[in-house]
Structures are given as C-alpha cells and as structure tokens.
Simulated scan of single mutants.
Amino acid sequence: MSVLPMVFTSGWASGINAYAVVLLLGLFGRAGVGGDVPEALQRPEVLIAAGVLFLCEAVADKIPYVDTVWDAVHTLVRPACGAMVGALLAGQSDGSLSEAAYGALGGTTALVMHLVKMSTRMAVNTSPEPLSNILLSAAEDLGVAALVVFALFHPAVAAGIAGTLLVLGIGTVVVLWRRVRAFLRRRKERKAARREGRATAPA
C-alpha cells in the first residue's frame, strides 16, 4: 500500500463520513483485500461501533437541519478520525514521514473537507424540500465508499481524484454562499419594504 496517497484519500473521505472509512478499511483488512490495513481498524469492537454509528449517520445526514446539527457535533470527530487513520497507516510505512506528520495530513484534509460538507449542507437547507438533502447525502456516501475502495488498489490515482474533488468542493461552497447571501439580502429587503409600507399606510 502506498501510504501517503492513502492517508490523503482517507482524510478526504473522513471529512465526509468518518465511520464509513473505518468500517470499509476494517472490513477489507479482515478480508485480506487491498493491501495491509492496520490491525486496530480490524478489531471486532471497532467494526461494530463504526457500523452502528454509520447507520446513525446515514439517517441523520438525510434530514434537513438535523444534518447541520450532526455536522456541528462532528467538527472535532471527523478531523480526529482522519488524523487517527493517518497515524495508524503510518505504522504500515517504511517511509521517512513520522506518524505525527501522517496524522496531521489526514486530520487537516478531513477538517477542510468537513467544513466544505457542512457549508454545502447549510446552503442546501435553504431549499424548502428534503429531496436535495437525501440525494446529496446518498451521493456523498457512494462517493466515499467508491473512492476508499479504489484507493486500496490504486492509491495515487484515488488521491488525485480526492484532491480534485476537494478543490471543486471549495469552489462550490464559494458559489453557493454567494447565492445564499444574495437570497437572504433580498428577503431582508422585502421584509423591510413591507414594514415600511405598513408604517406609511393611512390610518
């Protein structure tokens, strides 16, 4: 396993769904597929906990505003998980980087992607219908699963894809928040105009 690209990809994925990363790596490790996976991620209790929490996230992540609360709670959890996985993967490497360096890379990448996800969800929640949340959450789950599995076999290519998606995600957040601010500004102006109209209306 090429560890540096794997750390970056797992960090990206942890920023979206940390429990899916731990669950997938652990299951593939126990199956002996895709290279060496740290033993700590293959422990039965770790897999059970990750599986239960993954199911909780799969539900919470698809409910408008509940997903925002869930994301806020996981502002520390996802980067910590990305850092933990990165440090564990460092134990599989004979390279020159330390566990702390791998952990910092995984944690930082997870934090940036988490902020992208949380900001995107907050923007999407301005839509009155729940379908957009469900579709976006499903796309995120499938994307995480596909890229983590792909990274086990082609880590360098997967890291390139993760980096591209990270940059695109940041760009999307910028565009979405500009539109959200414009929407909120127009709504505020309409409310102010209505208040002014009532105030000037003849008695």
Rank of each mutant, 00 (worst) to 15 (best):
Ala145Met: 01
Pro128Met: 02
Leu135His: 06
Val33Lys: 11
Gly103Ile: 03
Pro5Leu: 10
Met84Trp: 10
Ser119Phe: 12
Glu140Gln: 11
Glu196Cys: 14
Ser14Ala: 15
Phe28His: 06
Ala193Met: 13
Ala49Ser: 15
Ser96His: 11
Val180Cys: 05
His154Asn: 02
Leu168Pro: 10
Thr164Arg: 02
Ala110Gln: 07
Ala139Asn: 11
Ala199Arg: 12
Ala90Met: 14
Val112Leu: 15
Ala40Arg: 09
Ala192Phe: 14
Leu89Val: 15
Gly82Tyr: 06
Leu111Thr: 15
Tyr102Trp: 09
Thr108Cys: 13
Leu53Asn: 00
Ala158Leu: 03
Asp67Met: 02
Val112Phe: 13
Ile16Arg: 10
Gly160Lys: 01
Ala199Phe: 09
Thr108Trp: 12
Asp67Ile: 01
Asn17Ser: 13
Leu176Met: 04
Leu23Gly: 00
Tyr19Met: 03
Gly160Leu: 01
Trp12Ser: 07
Ser127Pro: 06
Asp67Ala: 02
Phe8Gln: 07
Val69Gly: 05
Pro128Trp: 08
Pro128Leu: 03
Arg43Val: 01
Arg181Pro: 12
Ala138Met: 09
Ser127Ala: 12
Gly103Trp: 01
Ser132Asp: 15
Asp141Pro: 00
Gly171Trp: 12
Val52Phe: 07
Ser132Ile: 12
Glu57Gln: 08
Gln92Asp: 14
Thr120Asn: 06
Ala20Asp: 02
Ala40Gln: 12
Ala87Met: 10
Phe54Arg: 05
Ala31Gln: 09
Glu57Ala: 03
Met122Gln: 14
Glu45Lys: 07
Leu24Gly: 01
Ala192His: 14
Gly95Ile: 08
Cys81Thr: 13
Ala193Trp: 09
Val33Asp: 13
Gly103Met: 01
Pro202Ile: 13
Thr126Trp: 05
Val148Ser: 05
Met118Asn: 07
Ala138Thr: 11
Met118Pro: 05
Glu39Phe: 13
Ala156Leu: 10
Leu89Trp: 15
Ala145Val: 00
Gly82Arg: 04
Asp141Trp: 05
Gly29Ile: 00
His154Leu: 01
Ala193Lys: 10
His114Lys: 05
Val69Tyr: 06
Asn17Gly: 09
Leu76Ala: 10
Leu27Cys: 03
Val33Ala: 12
Glu196Ala: 15
Val77Asp: 00
Asn133Gln: 11
Arg194Ala: 11
Asn125Leu: 07
Arg187Phe: 10
Gln92Val: 11
Met84Pro: 04
His114Thr: 05
Gly51Asp: 03
Gly143Cys: 03
Met118Cys: 08
Leu135Pro: 06
Gly51Leu: 05
Gly29Thr: 00
Glu129Arg: 04
Thr68Gly: 11
Asp61Leu: 01
Ala193Arg: 14
Leu55Tyr: 00
Gly51Cys: 04
Arg186Asn: 09
Cys56Glu: 00
Ser2Met: 14
Val7Phe: 08
Gly32Glu: 14
Gly82Thr: 09
Pro202Ala: 11
Asp61Ser: 01
Arg30Ala: 02
Thr68Ser: 12
Thr108Arg: 07
Glu140Thr: 03
Ala100Pro: 13
Arg43Ser: 04
Leu111His: 11
Pro202Asn: 10
